[in-house]
Structures are given as structure tokens and as C-alpha cells.
Design a binder for these strands. Structure first.
Lengths: 251, 251
DNA sequence: GTAGCGCTATAACCTAGGTTTACTTTGCCA
DNA sequence: TGGCAAAGTAAACCTAGGTTATAGCGCTAC
């Protein structure tokens, strides 16, 4: 365990509740560790590799993807600054996806081997990591709900709403405008549609005065209407820190 | 924590590795607790409720589903005997789905409030639960991979392969035949297709000599070919218990 | 028995979105 | 400043799977 990992993990919880005392106490004992700088396109891990560590994304965007035999690609998760990557390969110990940086960014590793130590040392940290892993699962579930039986327009709108909400949550943006560093092909592979249809759909959303995309800058013109079109309910992104269940009695 | 929950959780790990000594030691201290009998169609939880416990499914099948405003339904997860339900509502504390028994069965509850205690008492159990939660996430990810850019035939074949593999894994069946207690409408809502097309697709699979379905009994006639059609690789269902990362040094 | 209900099967028809190809725009680098 | 590569747009055409409708089958209830 190291300081940077800790800070990254706790940062998002500070939004909901002040855990500062406990966190500060824990941080006292942690060594400062190294951040690694990566460029857009750099690989974080590859399919088939052994998974031996979690990766904390301090800045930049990344994605994980699965390649089918026919060469087509399915983007599974989009990672934003502050996210913990590789949580679902802890149990299997094996990468089943490729993960790639979408932009330049800084990352920091947390070896699996330190997890049991963490489980030992700090039930609270364990609970937090559990909650984070949980949230990823909820996001996957939500994606599945909205990927089936939803039109291409709704899917794209939903994805935009989700990115926006996540960026607002972590303070990466504070306006209805942000840099969305995915090409239309990336979006297509994320949302299970063709790049051509992503283009068509963007045109449609723009024509309806909902969003505007210039280069990779995305401007949400009417956030409320966009959420309505997308049937987006961002509550699933919130981690409820329930004192009763996870009260920090002792660390 | 109670004995039945423990047994349920550990049972599936015994398949991979002998943890019996450690588990036995833990079980010594656990009270025998109550199982609850439920009938097919009984609700396990409903959307909007507060989530205050995990549910261990000792026997029977269940599912969780999300209902859209237009009345259509998305089955999210299918639960088989031995599964731990409700893992992804721990962090949010809120049910975003309905869960319903597909068959009669026995369940046992594990309150969230006991989780932190468990994190405190046993890093090993924590790691196991973490691994189980992880596996659910992997299953969701796999579902997403196979739901997009795969034909209806492949999706149905994949679902059958997955159920079969899970039942084999936990010893619920030992042949290429099992009771699949989902209607074609249930399958349709699981796989994001229409019930009519499920019927068509079953006919197709039957015509190709891959499966046969009589009432709710499903017979896999050619398991290898079915897996090939489905592009099914069951490795994602295995939990690798990596001694190095999660070695049980002390409990 | 037979009425009724839930589940499944088959056929006819229709549409969202895929595919292909060709063209345009933008940015980058020499 | 010009040429190239990557990204996006537009139009024409096509297919997987949705929709609707109808009919059959096997329970259970009376």
C-alpha cells in the first residue's frame, strides 16, 4: 500500500462524507510511491496476461476492450480520472481484455499481493474498496439494462450523460461541457453500433438541440432534455456510505 | 455471520482447493441459523427498497430484473443454487432491480451489518467474498461482450452453455441435461430479443442437432458444437485461488 | 369432460440499424 | 502551403430480428 493509491481511493469518498481523520491517520504510515506517465495509445494490460495488480488512474482516460475473432471490438469499460482499474481480474488472476490509454495520463499500481495485507490492516479500507468494486458492477449492470431494448439515440445520449455525471462527481468538470476523447468508432464499439450510425445519431441529437460536438469537445446544450431522452437516472453512480452497516468503529 | 452462510460461501471453493481446516475452525464459532423456504414467483426484493442484506441461495433458481417504463423487462442476472445475491447493492444500499424466485427453493440471509465484522475477523473470508463479487462482475462483463455483435443464435447458445457450465461447476448436474426453469419470454428478456425469436432460434438449434427442449427440460445433444457456435470459453467462470496473492497466513 | 390459461410454434410483414462506397473536413507535418 | 492520414458525413441498399396474428398443446379447475 502506498500514499497515492490511498489518496486516489479516498478522494471520491470525501465528497460524500468526511473521513479525513481516519484517512490521515492511515496515510501517516504510507510511503510516497511512484506515478508512471503514459501516452495516449499506451497499453495498460493485454488479453491473456496474468493480472497481478490494480491500476489507479490519477489522470487521463482509458478503456478496456475485448477483441472478437472476426476483428471487431467491444469496449467494455471507460475509465475516467480517479478510477480503479482491473478490479474484476483480482479473482481470476487473468486479463480477459486489453486496456489502453485514450489520452496521456498518470497511473499508479497497487499489487494484488498487498490486498490481503489491506484486508488485515484496515476493515474500513476493505469496505471502501469493496464499495468501489461494487459500483463498477452496478455500472456494468446499468449498461446492460440500457444496451438492450434501447434505441441507438438513447444509448448514445445515456453514455454522454453517464460520462458527464461521472466527471461532475469527481470534479473533473463543472460545466455542461467536457472533452470526450473517444472517436466515433470508439463510441460505436462501446455502444454496439456502427460508426456510421454514431455519426447519424450525433447529427440527430445536434439537430434536436441537445448536444454539439466540435472536434473532441462535447457541449451539452440541454442537459435536462438529454437526460430525459436517455432515460438517465444517475443515482446508480452514487455510493451511499451507510454508517450503520460500515461504521468505522475501529481501524 | 452464521454457519449456513459460511458453508454456502465456501462450498464452491472446496472444489478448487482444500480450505477445510481453516473453514472448519471458523465454523466452530458459528451458530446454526435459519433457512427460509420460498415458492416459485416469490419476491426476494423489490426495486426501490433499501438493501440491508445479502441473500444466499441454497437451492432453487432466481433472477433479478429491471422494469422499463414501457412495461418491458430486462432480466439482469440468473441465480443458481449456491449463489450469493445482492452483492452489487451493498455499496448503494438500494435495490435497483426486482428479484424473484424461478422455482421453489431455500434461502438464507446475511445482513450487511455483519460484513464489517467479517472484514475485521477474517481477511480470508473477506478475500473469498471479494472474489465471489468479482466473479459476478466478470459474468456481467462477459454477458455484455456476448450481447453486442453476436447473433441471436449465438446468444441463446451462449446462455445455455453458461448455465450448463455453472451447474456442472457446483455439482448441480453431471450430465448434458438439466432443468432450465425459464420460459421463452424469460429467455427473451434475458437475451434482449423477442419471445418469438427465441422460439425460432430454439427450432434452429434443434434442427441443427445441438439441443432439444421438452417442457422445461433441456438436453444438450452436442456440447462441443454448441460451445463452438456460442464461441463459449468457460474460463471466466473459474475463480483462480492464487495462493501468492491471497495466501492464508493468519486468520 | 371442457373451459381457460400459460406456453410454444409458424407465417407474413416491417423497420432499425448494418454495410458499402464515395465524398468532405480537419489536423498534422514537412 | 501543400499533401496526407484520420475522422466524420451522406446516400443507397440490405438483413436480422421485431411485431402481429393465429393456432396448437398441455396443464389445472370446476
Amino acid at each position: 500500500m502506498n500514499r497515492i493509491v490511498f489518496e486516489s481511493i479516498f478522494r471520491r469518498f470525501d465528497i460524500h462524507r468526511t473521513l479525513e481523520q481516519e484517512v490521515a491517520a492511515l496515510l501517516e504510515h504510507l510511503p510516497e510511491d511512484e506515478l508512471r506517465h503514459l501516452k495516449a495509445g499506451d497499453s495498460l494490460w493485454q488479453e491473456g496476461e496474468n493480472a497481478s495488480s490494480l491500476i489507479v488512474l490519477r489522470s487521463g482516460w482509458a478503456y478496456s476492450a475485448h477483441y472478437h475473432k472476426d476483428g471487431s471490438r467491444q469496449l467494455l469499460e471507460t475509465y475516467l480520472p480517479g478510477d480503479v482499474l482491473g478490479l474484476c481480474q483480482v479473482a481470476s488472476g487473468n486479463r480477459r481484455t486489453n486496456a489502453v490509454m485514450l489520452t496521456d495520463g498518470w497511473v499508479c499500481e497497487l499489487p494484488h499481493s498487498s490486498l490481503l495485507g489491506m484486508f488485515n490492516d484496515s476493515p474500513m479500507t476493505t469496505a471502501l474498496l469493496f464499495a468501489i468494486a461494487n459500483q463498477r458492477q452496478v455500472m456494468l449492470a446499468e449498461r446492460q439494462i440500457m444496451m438492450t431494448h434501447r434505441s441507438a439515440k438513447q444509448r448514445l445520449a445515456h453514455f454522454i450523460c453517464e460520462c458527464h455525471a461521472r466527471l461532475l462527481e469527481t470534479g473533473e468538470t463543472y460545466r455542461d461541457e467536457f472533452l470526450l476523447p473517444l472517436t466515433q468508432q470508439d463510441l460505436a464499439d462501446t455502444l454496439g453500433m456502427s460508426a456510421v450510425h454514431v455519426s447519424r445519431t450525433f447529427s440527430q441529437l445536434a439537430a434536436e438541440g441537445l448536444v454539439q460536438r466540435r472536434l473532441f469537445q462535447l457541449i451539452i446544450l440541454d442537459a435536462d432534455k438529454l437526460r430525459e431522452v436517455a432515460a438517465f437516472d444517475g443515482r446508480y453512480l452514487k455510493i451511499q456510505w451507510n454508517e450503520e452497516d460500515f461504521s468505522i468503529t475501529e481501524q
